[in-house]
Each structure stands twice: as C-alpha cells, then as structure tokens.
Design a protein around this nucleic acid. Structure first.
Lengths: 204, 204
DNA sequence: TTGACAGTTGACCGTGCGGTCAACTAATCT
DNA sequence: AGATTAGTTGACCGCACGGTCAACTGTCAA
C-alpha cells in the first residue's frame, strides 16, 4: 500500500513537470512511465486514461499553488494592495528559477492547458475555470479590504479581480513568448493600476 | 500556375482556421489535405514540413490581422484612446461571431501558438514575438499621441503598450477558458486603466 | 514536336502513440 | 494453508502521424 501511493504520486509528479514545461499533447505516457520507473500497465492501474491523469495533475498543482504561494501572497496580515505585488514577485522569481534550471520559461500550467485544451474538452476546461475562480476570489477579497480601508477608490471588485488575474496570465504569456522572466518584473506594477469602475454594467 | 497559387492558398486557408480553433499538434496534415482537396504529396510540394506550414500560416494571419482590424482600430483619424476600445470591441465581436458559428471561442492564434510551441521551437517563438512587437508599436504610438494631446498623464509608453497587449491576451485567454466572449466585453474597459509610470526602472 | 518542369497522385514507410491484457507477485484477511 | 486482491510486468494491438517517392499529367517555350 505504501508503495502504491508512492507510485501514483510518482506518476503525477513526473507528469506535472512535463505537462507544465512542454504540453499535454507533447508528453507521452511512455515517457512518464520511464520517469516514474514503472511499466505502462501499472500506469493504467491508477489512471483509466491520459485525460484522467491531467485532471489529477491539475488538482494536485492547484492545491499546491493555492496552499503555497497564493496563500503566502494573500496573507491577511499583509496590507491588501501589497499582496498583489507579492504575488507578482513570487511569479517572477519562480519563473526565473525554472528558467535558470531548464533554460525555458514554462509559463503558467493552467494558462497553458486552458489554451491548449479548452476547445477540445469541456470538463477539463471547467476544471481550469474553477482554479481561476478560486484565485480570483482571493484577489477580490484583497480589493474589498483595500476599499474598506480607503486605500483605493471604490470600484467593481469582482470584475477588477478577474481583470487582474487576466493581466497576470497575459504577462506570463508574454514573458514565456520572449522566454524572459524580466517581462514579469517590468510589467508587474501595471497590475495594481487596473480598475474597472462600478457603474458600467452591473445593476445589482 | 494559377492552379498552383490556388492550391498553396487553399492549404494555408485550411490550416489557418484549424490551427486557430484547435491546436498545432491536434491538426494533422491528412486533414488539411482533405479540406484543401489535395493529396499529401502535393502538400509536400509546397511545404517542406508541417513546421514550415505553421510559419506560413503565422505570416499570413499576421498580415491579415495587421492590415485588417488592427489598422482599422489604430486609424490615426480616431482619438488615440478610443483606438483601444475599438480594438477591444473588434476582438469581442469577432470572437463572438466565431463562437456563434462553431460553438467554441478560438482565442488568439498567436497567443495559442505562443503557449503551445514556444518552449519547443525558438524560431517559431521569435516569429510570434515579431507579431506582438508590431502590435505593440501601434499601441505605443497611440499612447504617445494621447500624452502629446494631454489626454492622459505622462507614463512609460513602451512598457504600458506592452502591458496593454498582455492584458488583451490575458482577457482573451480568460474568455476562451470560459468559452464566453462576454468576458472580453466585461473586462474591456480595464485596458485603458493600465498605467506603468516612467520612473520605476528606466534611466534613459 | 519535343523536352522540360511545375504540379499532382496515391501507395507506401517507419515510428510512436494511447490503450489492453493475461500472467505474475506479494501482501492481507479468514 | 488457502483465498483474495492490489499492484506490477512486458508483450502486444490498431491506428494515425509526419514524411517519401516513383510515376503520371498538363502547360508552355524552343
């Protein structure tokens, strides 16, 4: 049993880093098995299909991310608007360190998968949306708090939170396209300038 | 000769829409040939490899885009800051119309390819960067003009232009992940709020 | 009329993919 | 001791992929 859990984890671990740094389509099950030091048959004992694996990888990575540096950045002890720059810094240093190790910026696993797969698989797509929605709620909390403390002028916190997250993904996309983490550093301060005003659409 | 040009164009046309709405890896040469009503051998008469095809598709689509609604949006006759909302509107309506036709939002071809391929092929990556750089220069011109006309307070136009383009890509990514063009509509106004101030890094 | 050549055909190749399966191993439970 | 069951093995399957090639077709210049 101990060995079992271990095997499953090794599969997910091997898949996670490869899906992240390359793509879903580009990474074969054979390669994952070789890395995890198992045979194909053993893989299919734990996962009915490759698709189920990537689902598990998303879940694993999402909770790692949420409990890891998203939680760190959105620490209620920090002044709300500082949480955003903390988040940007974390993204920057992380991407930078991966690039130094492997020569390539991997970008954001969720963003990568969203663009690669979301036209092909609605369940995967909605799983990724759930991850984004969770991050967005952290952003929104911070904005609400900032307004409450009168650190920023009132705005549509729901839409602005989504906009900020979109900007974060866009920055990472750009940085990946240039294979240069410094892009995140240079564009980071733009995140805090984004505002979507209250009136525009909502009537609630 | 007329037929020749026609064939090459048909290949690119078939590939363009499929690469855009699905992905590079997911679309096979066989399928492209079937759509273009030719045989495989004929395909390889025009393109040495699949990679060369996607390069041609990028070039084709880039000039279509630049001469098409980027040129339209960044018409010097328009007030500079209005050009951005024109751009957002164009993206919105386009994505919406494709979704209505095919049920899925395709997103941005360049963004899609950038995330799918840029860790695997540096030449493709730099080609995509050139496309982004071109769009960015249009953004920058508009910002420079807006400052000159005192419609906005001075800022780092180079970085802000890049930030705005990143935001645009991020919005489209989010909209695609939710398969909902309205996301672009809702988040659009955030584009004009982005500012990256002058002092931060540059000493020139 | 002939030769050259761009364009086209369709059969073909090797490879690697996702996935299957019957047999084996080793703990766990009765 | 015997049965059950989770985990593992490695050979195997069918298929679709990117790419090749010798032969054919039609056009146009000399």
């Amino acid at each position: 049993m101990t060995a079992t859990i271990n095997t499953r984890d090794r599969i997910i671990e091997a898949a996670k880093s490869r899906f992240h740094s390359r793509s879903y389509a580009d990474v074969g099950i054979k390669e994952i098995c070789d890395t995890a030091l198992i045979q194909k048959g053993s893989f299919y004992h734990f996962f009915p299909s490759k698709r189920d694996l990537v689902l598990a990888v998303i879940d694993e990575f999402a909770s790692e991310w949420a409990d890891g540096f998203v939680a760190e950045a959105f620490d209620p002890a920090l002044p709300p608007m500082e949480r955003f720059s903390y988040m940007v810094d974390a993204a920057y240093y992380w991407q930078k360190s991966v690039k130094e190790k492997h020569g390539k910026m991997p970008g954001c696993l969720f963003g990568n998968l969203a663009l690669e797969i979301s036209t092909k698989d609605d369940i995967l797509r909605s799983r990724l949306n759930a991850v984004f929605a969770h991050a967005k709620s952290r952003f929104k909390e911070a904005l609400d708090e900032a307004i409450e403390r009168k650190e920023i002028a009132p705005l549509d916190t729901d839409l602005t939170a989504e906009a900020m997250l979109a900007y974060l993904e866009g920055m990472i996309l750009f940085a990946k396209a240039q294979n240069d983490p410094e892009v995140i550093y240079k564009l980071g301060s733009g995140l805090m300038s984004i505002r979507i005003e209250l009136d525009s659409n909502s009537i609630n």
